Simulated scan of single mutants.
Amino acid sequence: MMPPLGALRVFEAAARLASFSRAADELCVTHAAVSHQIRQLEEWFGRPLFLREKRGVRLAPEAERLAEILSASFERVSAEAEALKQRTKSEITVACIPSIATRWLIPALGDFLAAHADITVKVVYAMAEQRLRETGCDVLITLGADTSDGVACERLFSRVNRPVASPRYLERKGNIDSPDEIAAADLLHDETTRHWQHWFTKAGLPPRQPLSGPVFQDFNLLATAAIAGHGVALCPVEVCRREIENGDLIVLSDLAVLEDEGYFLISKVSRQKAVSAFCAWFKAVVNPVAG
């Protein structure tokens, strides 16, 4: 007699992640639902599968072999399902954060579709620093690397941020060259003021609290405000390469923050041909010389 399959899936996730909460997030269910399924499975086996501790849960030693077998089995089922999907259709889903989608993906997507008429592409929103497994998509373009097993992760852009402003803003305010002049300008903020505080520290300027200026929840809103001439923004210069080359934005200083971060193209190592074609194409769009 087989134990409940749904409960086994929950058990495998909780065992692999060593957390009921993280398992709930991965499976898109509540913590209570995970706890209920685990209790149901423990009743079926007649023994505890997890040791409940003050700081969380730990897999019971006698349940470790079951967890290993389930993880391997689910991985085999996933691989076979993916292979069947590849044999039956050439449809890929691409999750992309808005800043890359509006500047790089969507403007060029028609070229890919024209060259690959047999491939259907669905584009959906991604959240910054999401992982491929969380999206359920074939390709993920996001901020931050994905170091999960079985994932190919390739860097597209650096996140180096430098102060930028539009020509119309500089026409109104005059040249802005020094850190002191930048600090005295109308500052625009991407989600938080801490990036500007970090920039002030690197420039040798004292911290300023509180910082004035509008805070934009989405980078596209920030970039639109900067181009419209509302002030000076810290922008990832590689992502905004075209706006800078076109003269819509002018870099005011070489002093940068967020140098160690980047934007990445992520897919499964064992990816279908359509995904490989898309990834090769998009890397060439972003970096024509390397492509």
Rank of each mutant, 00 (worst) to 15 (best):
E53V: 04
K54E: 06
G56W: 13
V57G: 01
P61K: 01
E62H: 11
A63L: 06
E64P: 00
E64V: 10
E68L: 02
F74M: 10
F74V: 05
R76V: 12
A79C: 05
E80P: 03
A83Y: 05
L84A: 10
Q86I: 11
K89R: 15
S90Q: 15
S90D: 15
S90A: 13
E91C: 08
E91S: 12
E91T: 15
E91Q: 12
I92C: 07
T93W: 09
V94E: 03
V94C: 06
V94R: 04
C96F: 03
P98I: 00
S99F: 01
A101E: 00
A101K: 01
T102L: 03
T102A: 02
R103A: 04
R103H: 06
G110E: 15
D111Q: 14
D111I: 10
L113K: 15
A115K: 15
A115F: 02
H116P: 11
T120F: 05
T120N: 04
V121M: 07
V124W: 00
E129R: 06
E129K: 09
R133L: 09
T135C: 05
G136Y: 00
G136F: 02
C137N: 05
C137T: 08
D138M: 01
T142C: 05
T147I: 11
T147W: 14
V151N: 01
V151H: 09
E154Q: 07
E154N: 04
R155K: 14
R155W: 03
L156N: 01
S158N: 09
V160H: 11
N161F: 09
N161K: 14
N161Q: 14
R162G: 05
P163H: 12
P163F: 12
V164G: 05
A165W: 11
S166D: 12
Y169Q: 08
L170N: 09
L170Y: 15
E171I: 06
E171Q: 13
R172D: 04
R172N: 09
K173E: 11
S178Y: 15
P179R: 15
P179I: 12
D180R: 13
D180P: 07
E181T: 13
I182S: 05
I182P: 08
A185M: 10
D186R: 13
T193H: 06
Q197E: 09
Q197D: 04
